[in-house]
Design a protein around this nucleic acid. Structure first.
Length: 159
DNA sequence: GCCAACGTTGGC
DNA sequence: GCCAACGTTGGC
């Protein structure tokens, strides 16, 4: 199976690309949406690359690149009573929420803002620019992934 | 802080 | 199975 590409959202105040750069790898815990979970549980493979998207940020946008370093396993936070991600209906024998581990690849010199993504004609069909699109884990076309990297490189050269 | 979009819950 | 009510996401 060929490598797949993803976009994963995180509020930088909760977990940022800088945090990932410092730690090297991290469990992507806290996803509590079935569609997003299914992508991680069923489709993500070790070696897949992902755009690390900062949401509710100034500006919101793609801040860097990460990769999948461990395939899906149960998100342990669902079982921790009192934890922000605790799910009282989840059962140990049949975990409801899953996560992957992600590894650091690179931090862009500048965030590629959502406005810039929206302004790029070649990214018109990218999920993240669609109105009402709020899925926190979403697939990205290879061409779209490459275009975002190209935009990041172009910005670096201009400065 | 507002609010559109969308997912989930629960009554019926 | 429908759908209103409610909660959350996330841009602005």
């Amino acid at each position: 199976m060929a490598r797949r590409y993803w976009l994963m959202k995180s509020e930088p105040g909760t977990y940022s690309i800088q945090d990932l750069a410092r730690e090297g790898t991290a469990p992507w815990d806290g996803v509590r949406n079935y569609q997003a979970r299914n992508f991680m549980k069923n489709d993500m493979k070790v070696g897949d690359l992902m755009l690390f998207y900062h949401s509710s940020a100034k500006p919101s946008g793609v801040a860097g690149v990460g990769k999948v370093v461990k395939k899906a396993y149960p998100d342990f936070t669902q079982f921790i009573d009192g934890h922000a991600y605790f799910d009282p209906t989840a059962e140990e024998e049949d975990p409801r929420w899953w996560m992957v581990d992600v590894g650091f690849v690179e931090t862009f010199d500048e965030v590629i803002s959502l406005a810039e993504l929206k302004a790029m004609p070649s990214l018109k069909k990218m999920l993240v620019v669609q109105k009402g699109q709020r899925l926190s884990v979403q697939p990205v076309d290879k061409q779209h992934f490459r275009e975002v990297l190209r935009m990041a490189n172009a910005k670096t050269r201009v400065r």
